[in-house]
């Protein structure tokens, strides 16, 4: 069975790595939605972050500068959504979708000269001393790129900010009952801008971590729907960073699973031949999508949503003097 221990360790380790961009995007969206703004433009912001990071890293030779610029551009891009949905009180669904399309197109244009290039300096990967030597866990968690480790730090930090700090309380108030928050003297619009920006910065980080570490090359549409997965995962996670991390890594592992099964280690009675059957792919390839759809279906039920803890004012613009939700 030790073959299987190695087998699953490998899949989980791959899941942690390839789930990391989704993790950033998901936590970013948690911030935005906790403040009451739904942003469906995650895919677009990720693409902008991805292309910017790759291009800056390629031109300057400094991946850290690339990362910084990728984060920044993701943030700037999200302000478009903030402008339309908060200041102009436009429809958040439409505005977010527009952001996705614009992001796809603009990133293609910006990425055009990069098609021949394909080699930008990458962010470093290293084993964490001592921790990397722990059997099984070391391989799963502590032998990765630096962006994975930053993700480990981000999760508790995000949780702490949301649940244990005054700004976090204000943010939640704005997302749950903006009229009350307003009455208490909290600047609803200003805070919503801030957290949409935070969401954008993290989506930019998600894209940057993709092109600088996880899928280190630029190709049109390199995110391949991961931004949408993040939107679904927010619901799965019940707007909680720790569950977002669990969901992201699980999602990463599920994506890797069908490939590894094709070389599954030997089992008694030739059971491994069933696992190795590439036809199983048609089923396993479906899993991430089934997973997301299931989450959406569950999340769309009113009672379930309350249970999951959806911010009550999510998706509704706040207009002072009008009745709240």
């Amino acid at each position: 069975m030790s073959d299987y221990l190695i087998f699953f360790t490998t899949i989980l380790a791959a899941g942690v790595a390839s789930g990391t961009p989704v993790l950033y995007a998901t936590i970013g969206e948690v911030f935005s939605e906790r403040a009451g703004v739904l942003n469906l433009g995650v895919e677009g912001m990720m693409l902008m972050g991805a292309v910017t990071a790759f291009r800056v890293s390629h031109v300057t030779g400094n991946p850290w500068l690339g990362l910084a610029m990728g984060i920044l551009v993701g943030g700037l891009f999200s302000l478009l959504h903030a402008l339309v949905s908060i200041t102009l009180r436009g429809d958040q669904v439409v505005s977010g979708l527009a952001l996705t399309f614009v992001g796809f197109g603009m990133s293609s244009v910006i990425g055009w000269p990069l098609i021949d290039v394909r080699d930008a300096p990458r962010l470093p990967a290293f084993d964490i001393p001592l921790l990397a030597d722990i059997p099984v866990l070391g391989k799963i968690f502590f032998q990765h790129s630096v962006v994975v480790y930053i993700g480990f730090l981000l999760v508790p930090l995000a949780w702490f900010i949301i649940n244990r700090t005054r700004p976090g309380l204000h943010m939640r108030a704005v997302g749950e009952y903006p009229a009350a928050a307003d009455a208490l003297g909290i600047h609803v619009d200003r805070l919503r801008y801030l957290y949409v920006l935070v969401g954008g910065l993290l989506a930019g980080m998600a894209g940057a971590s993709l092109t600088l570490a996880i899928t280190p090359l630029w190709i049109e549409g390199v995110t391949a729907g991961q931004g949408w997965i993040a939107v679904g995962l927010v619901i799965f996670a019940g707007w909680d960073p720790f569950r977002a991390a669990f969901g992201s890594y699980l999602f990463g592992a599920i994506r890797r699973l069908p490939l590894d099964l094709q070389g599954a280690p030997v089992l008694p009675w030739n059971l491994h031949l069933i696992l190795r059957d590439p036809l199983l792919n048609y089923f396993t390839n479906m899993l991430p999508y089934l997973f997301t759809i299931a989450v959406l279906v569950i999340g769309s039920r009113e009672a379930m949503r309350k249970k999951l803890g959806a911010p009550a004012a999510l998706g509704t613009p706040y207009i002072r003097g009008e009745r709240g939700v």
Binding site: L38, L40, E43, V93, L97, A224, G225, W228, V231, G232, N285, M286, Y289, T292, I293, L296, V297, G299, S300
Partner: peptide
């Protein structure tokens, strides 16, 4: 709307 859109997006991706 969100549910439908996401499903459509996933279908396109898948």
């Amino acid at each position: 709307v969100l549910g439908l859109l996401t499903i459509i997006a996933l279908l396109i991706a898948a």
